[in-house]
Amino acid sequence: MPIVVNLDVMMAKRKMSSQELAERVGITTANLSILKTGKAKAVRFSTLEKICDELDCQPGDILEFKRE
């Protein structure tokens, strides 16, 4: 998929673990793992909003479009 999820990069920058982010955002670690590995088919705006809020970043820092 041309949309790349750079969530792990952002999490590393903020020194936040998956467990902690999942708890703060209110999703399961399994779902966070799906998101991190790029297996997710869609992201709700509400989830994106919470992730950006917790990681103090912009959606563009997490999602990137790469032409195939």
Binding site: I27, A40, K41, A42, V43, R44
Partner: peptide, 8 residues
């Protein structure tokens, strides 16, 4: 359902 399951 699969699409729905993978909507985070």
């Amino acid at each position: 359902k699969s699409e729905n399951d993978f909507t985070i």
